[in-house]
Design a protein around this nucleic acid. Sequence first.
DNA 1: TTTTGATGTGGAATCGATTCCACATTGTAC
DNA 2: GTACAATGTGGAATCGATTCCACATCAAAA
Lengths: 329, 329
Amino acid sequence: MATIKEIADMANVSRTTVSRVLNDSGYVSKDVRQRIMKVIEETGYVPSEHAKSLRTKKTKVIGVILPKISTETSSRLVAGIDDILSEKGYQILLANTNLDQEKELEFIKLLKVRQVDGIILTATNVNERLVQQINKTDIPLIVIGQEVDSVSNVLYDDYHAARAVVSLFIQKGHEAISFIGVDESDVAVGHLRKKGYIDEMTQHGLTVEDTWIQKGIFDIESGYEAMKKIIETSTHTPTAIFAVTDRLAVGAINYLKEKGYQIPEDMAIAGIGASEISQYVNPPLTTVDYQNEAAGKAAAKLLIESIETNKKEPKKITLDYRLLVRDSV
Amino acid sequence: MATIKEIADMANVSRTTVSRVLNDSGYVSKDVRQRIMKVIEETGYVPSEHAKSLRTKKTKVIGVILPKISTETSSRLVAGIDDILSEKGYQILLANTNLDQEKELEFIKLLKVRQVDGIILTATNVNERLVQQINKTDIPLIVIGQEVDSVSNVLYDDYHAARAVVSLFIQKGHEAISFIGVDESDVAVGHLRKKGYIDEMTQHGLTVEDTWIQKGIFDIESGYEAMKKIIETSTHTPTAIFAVTDRLAVGAINYLKEKGYQIPEDMAIAGIGASEISQYVNPPLTTVDYQNEAAGKAAAKLLIESIETNKKEPKKITLDYRLLVRDSV
DNA sequence: TTTTGATGTGGAATCGATTCCACATTGTAC
DNA sequence: GTACAATGTGGAATCGATTCCACATCAAAA
């Protein structure tokens, strides 16, 4: 791989001049410029990014920290991010925490060392140490999906989405509505969606039995188990189930079908996420579309803005959701 | 961000010595080592990757070129790759071609410039220019899913998988088996799977009518259209459908259901890919599991081996497949 | 006592770019 | 004809590490 010096020698000019052509800065005469261009063409020379980064402190790389790579949410998000970023000549450096909280911290450090121009963090739960680490990071950083005061966020409207789902059930005449959630340390999915559920119920004067609220851990299996618990332990069997993710809902459906329940006649059910399977379960699942790709795009745009203008004040964007009403209610 | 010089000054030693501690190479006395360590601790110093890369020509970054980010295949693949890579301290730099052939070439160049330590390329179709570009790349490179002579490959056994599916149909008594494929410029998915289909049919002395073979373009919609064509144009309506991807199969199912066909009674159907929806369509789809995650892992291992041993001879790995027989046949 | 080899440390070149400054040439206005 | 700005080019420092080589100690071997 050739270097700028070699190009300079071949074109009989100094490195400075080659550099000028490369970045078209400063004055270079037509003649010289063409001579240099020609040499560059012929040799297929491309400047080393590392040398450039070392000097300029810019890398054109954005670090993206994900809780898990192989989920629809993540891959849609990344698709959205990449869509905007690639347009602006940035590339994505992937960091997969595999739901390990420690790794979030580690990766932020690692990405700093690599001098990425910016970081997009999809956080699951936000603890004190993470916030500290975020605050002492001078690299532009966007957090998706969870609120962190000091930086820009792209947020889903978990609270209102949850209320909308419950509201739909109530409209359809349901009163005994049960809930499958996740741990509340996940503020967005665990806490806010639950709060939406509780508030909507309360506002309509509906009571919630303790056994109607169960927890899972994001996978289909635990949705099945949660549903089982609800059915087996409730004195009043509910007539509707609100699961905070589609996968949990699918698990619940599996259990209900196994026990001979008709959906939606015997039990209505809805999830959140608009995952692909939600269309193909039987009956098609009512869900909320969070438009992750749009979220990714929004985050990328925020980040680029922040990088290019070097502005500090954090912006908060709350995205729209769409309730997809299908046959499961 | 501190530099090695500052650390050296604070510890009253030379940069050389600090570097020695950092990489534990050469001789450093206990005293000095501890003194330096202490300063490093206190300042939270971490060496700049760029300066390091500039000097050592190593980046601990692997470029991964994907045809499309947000597909199950890709995300599983990446998950597998990351699994192995992160263990060895490598990170992934993502490059998404969005099915644009030109971009494959571009990205290979770009990744070179960024001096990645290796490249994993998931190619869709392999043309002359791509092979040329690959050959003149001195960076270790693995191609997944398509055969390229000069480099290491991780391959799916498309041909035999296709035969296995067709064989299953035949076993179940089907003779009129039709085929929904994709363009044959995609050697693996388009050509090999078709060849497997044809060969298996021929070997059993079964004839294939022209109209039984239709093409789609990887999405559900085109599966629907292909199925429609088969039904509408065939003089002999087939009794089984082999679609080369699950999505195509799902599209076909949608059409068949719409027209009142019972699956598998009136029409048996199978796909390839073991995508998540394949479990949740009704009836569950018979398909082939290619274990993409395993493929990703295999590719990553090959790549690391190639990087660390600096060996050249290309290796070919053909992965196992599993036929998942479900209610659709 | 001298040699030798292991141990310990620093100086300075190097990687491949960018960029500040100095200097040279040309054109234009007074 | 002089002054001054605009234009064009190169020298050399710089970014932050690694690494070759030289040099200094010191203990054990000859």
